[in-house]
Simulated assay, not measured.
Amino acid sequence: MPEQQHQSILDAAIHCARECEHCGDACIGQMPECAKLCRDCAQMCWTIAAYISRDSRFIPHIVNSCLNICQACADECSKHDNEHCQKCAQACRRAASEYQKVASLAGVA
């Protein structure tokens, strides 16, 4: 899974990680569950980005975990009306959609 062939997945992972980092920071102290999920999601998306960048053979094995975390984060963030949560939810849904494509192609979905 060379990086060049999967630029959209890499872009989605990085965008999601950044939005989750921002949202998690903004939610600390006010919405602890949101902050926790955002931090978990950011960590997994950074991990996926690294695996894609180095064309790891383990990508299909970790996309489902990241997919589930992104979906949980999107569900939580979509409950909140503030802009950073809405942007985070949107980024999580986009990343989840990209991860689903990888999982489906690998037969692990």
Score class of each variant (00 low, 15 high):
residue 109 A to S: 06
residue 72 A to S: 10
residue 24 G to H: 11
residue 64 N to C: 12
residue 79 K to G: 11
residue 3 E to K: 14
residue 16 C to F: 09
residue 34 C to P: 03
residue 53 S to W: 07
residue 30 Q to G: 05
residue 76 E to S: 00
residue 56 S to R: 12
residue 77 C to A: 15
residue 96 A to S: 12
residue 9 I to A: 08
residue 38 C to E: 03
residue 89 A to K: 01
residue 38 C to W: 02
residue 107 G to P: 09
residue 41 C to A: 14
residue 55 D to R: 09
residue 13 A to P: 06
residue 67 L to P: 09
residue 33 E to K: 03
residue 36 K to I: 00
residue 107 G to H: 04
residue 83 E to T: 10
residue 54 R to P: 01
residue 74 A to E: 11
residue 88 C to M: 07
residue 76 E to W: 02
residue 48 I to N: 02
residue 25 D to F: 10
residue 17 A to L: 05
residue 84 H to K: 03
residue 45 C to L: 09
residue 11 D to W: 01
residue 65 S to L: 14
residue 86 Q to K: 15
residue 84 H to G: 00
residue 21 E to K: 02
residue 59 I to E: 02
residue 89 A to C: 07
residue 85 C to M: 05
residue 88 C to D: 03
residue 82 N to I: 00
residue 24 G to V: 13
residue 24 G to L: 13
residue 41 C to F: 07
residue 1 M to T: 08
residue 44 M to H: 13
residue 100 Q to V: 01
residue 65 S to F: 10
residue 68 N to D: 15
residue 60 P to N: 06
residue 55 D to W: 10
residue 33 E to I: 02
residue 54 R to K: 13
residue 44 M to G: 14
residue 86 Q to T: 08
residue 18 R to A: 04
residue 72 A to Y: 01
residue 22 H to M: 01
residue 101 K to V: 11
residue 68 N to G: 14
residue 74 A to G: 11
residue 5 Q to N: 14
residue 106 A to T: 08
residue 96 A to V: 10
residue 57 R to N: 06
residue 1 M to H: 07
residue 84 H to T: 08
residue 51 Y to F: 15
residue 82 N to M: 07
residue 10 L to Q: 07
residue 33 E to Y: 00
residue 34 C to R: 12
residue 71 Q to A: 09
residue 95 A to K: 00
residue 71 Q to Y: 05
residue 52 I to L: 15
residue 37 L to Y: 11
residue 91 A to C: 07
residue 75 D to N: 11
residue 15 H to G: 02
residue 58 F to Y: 11
residue 49 A to C: 07
residue 100 Q to L: 13
residue 47 T to S: 14
residue 19 E to R: 08
residue 84 H to C: 06
residue 49 A to W: 06
residue 50 A to N: 13
residue 3 E to I: 10
residue 4 Q to L: 11
residue 37 L to G: 06
residue 74 A to Q: 05
residue 64 N to L: 14
residue 59 I to L: 15
residue 35 A to S: 13
residue 59 I to A: 01
residue 56 S to T: 11
residue 12 A to R: 04
residue 81 D to V: 01
residue 86 Q to V: 05
residue 102 V to N: 02
residue 73 C to K: 05
residue 84 H to E: 03
residue 58 F to A: 13
residue 70 C to G: 04
residue 78 S to V: 03
residue 3 E to M: 12
residue 1 M to N: 06
residue 56 S to M: 12
residue 31 M to G: 00
residue 2 P to C: 07
residue 97 S to R: 10
residue 43 Q to I: 05
residue 69 I to K: 02
residue 58 F to M: 13
residue 101 K to F: 02
residue 76 E to K: 10
residue 9 I to S: 06
residue 86 Q to H: 13
residue 57 R to S: 12
residue 58 F to T: 14
residue 10 L to R: 09
residue 19 E to L: 11
residue 25 D to L: 11
residue 35 A to V: 04
residue 56 S to K: 09
residue 51 Y to Q: 15
residue 81 D to M: 05
residue 97 S to I: 01
residue 65 S to G: 15
residue 85 C to D: 06
residue 6 H to T: 04
residue 9 I to M: 05
residue 27 C to R: 10
residue 75 D to G: 08
residue 91 A to H: 03
residue 62 I to F: 02
residue 25 D to Q: 12
residue 57 R to Q: 09
residue 59 I to H: 03
residue 66 C to Q: 04
residue 21 E to A: 09
residue 16 C to G: 07
residue 67 L to W: 15
residue 82 N to R: 08
residue 56 S to Q: 11
residue 6 H to G: 01
residue 91 A to F: 09
residue 21 E to Q: 09
residue 72 A to P: 00
residue 90 Q to M: 12
residue 105 L to T: 07
